[in-house]
Design a protein around this nucleic acid. Sequence first.
DNA 1: GAAGATTGAAACGTCAATCTTA
DNA 2: TAAGATTGACGTTTCAATCTTC
Lengths: 187, 187
Amino acid sequence: MRVQETPHKPRRQESNEPRWLRPDQEEAWISLTGVLLKLPFALDADLRQQAGIGHFEYLILSVLSERGDHTMPMGDLATLANSSPSRTSHAVSRLEAKGWVGRQQDALNGRFMLVRLTEDGFAFLQSAAPGHVATVQELVFDSLDVEQVKQLDGIAKSILSRLHSHGHWPPPGTRPPSGKDSGAASA
Amino acid sequence: MRVQETPHKPRRQESNEPRWLRPDQEEAWISLTGVLLKLPFALDADLRQQAGIGHFEYLILSVLSERGDHTMPMGDLATLANSSPSRTSHAVSRLEAKGWVGRQQDALNGRFMLVRLTEDGFAFLQSAAPGHVATVQELVFDSLDVEQVKQLDGIAKSILSRLHSHGHWPPPGTRPPSGKDSGAASA
DNA sequence: GAAGATTGAAACGTCAATCTTA
DNA sequence: TAAGATTGACGTTTCAATCTTC
């Protein structure tokens, strides 16, 4: 960003005046951009090295593991993993090839595809989790005090809320989540 | 995420006890993960639709435009764009194909490759900037008060600082930035 | 026909290997 | 031989088109 493209708050656009960023917003935006580009890379690299799996695939296993029966319909999985149906389906295919998840049609409604975490998948997750949690602690939380953690949560939730209400999410091809699960994977 | 893989703060690892996340950290982490996955997608999609260019390529043009001569060595560009030399080189090639940047060897030291924003590239940037800035305002800053902007900047800078000091950045193949430009693209 | 999910091709990012200049 | 940069192959993500079930 350097979002304002600042070189010149150029000649105002003839028609309607653009709203440039305030200096403090500008600075925060540059910092945020750094996090947006670097942190996912670091998480991915670390996880891939420690566990041979990407951040997003890990997230899928993690989401599944939180269900009592370790099973969830594809669409809900996509929503909770903050992703598109397509991306989720591809990732599930990869995980299936490793034997860590299985697919089966929903017996009650054949349109739903149920994704299930296998025992091997669960065992893998258990082995990978401590290392990943340690990395998250080290990279994100060790440097934040209790107050900042609360602030971070509030700020992130504000942004996510805007994203949804202004139609920048979800991506095309997504169905409205079933039940009360709207918005962020926030619980 | 759901980083703790919470299903079970399982039997503690035999050797050394993993540090799970506190509940407030857990919640903040889920929120942050949502931002990490959704915001870049939204920025990319919006920019690609409004201007036919990706977020990262836009960032490159933007960084170049801030130099008085609209020119910068490849390595510095990579650092300021929060990226790897390889990714930056690929992106510059794409921009070059569009005629928006040019490459030329540094006359004084032939190892450096100077990247220059062309007039067409600058004109494009000027046309794309207002729309992009408006999106950033809408998605990120419209919902944050002055206090939160300051908090966000502090939190992001803390995370970036950790990333660097713990060796999770920069990516392999990067040279130490020239001069005082270490760390985040923070100004 | 609409909802849910998948597929394949194209675009992008990463990694390791290579090339060039100093 | 080291620094800076590039290249190509490979893996992942996106987008649009398709398939299946209701």
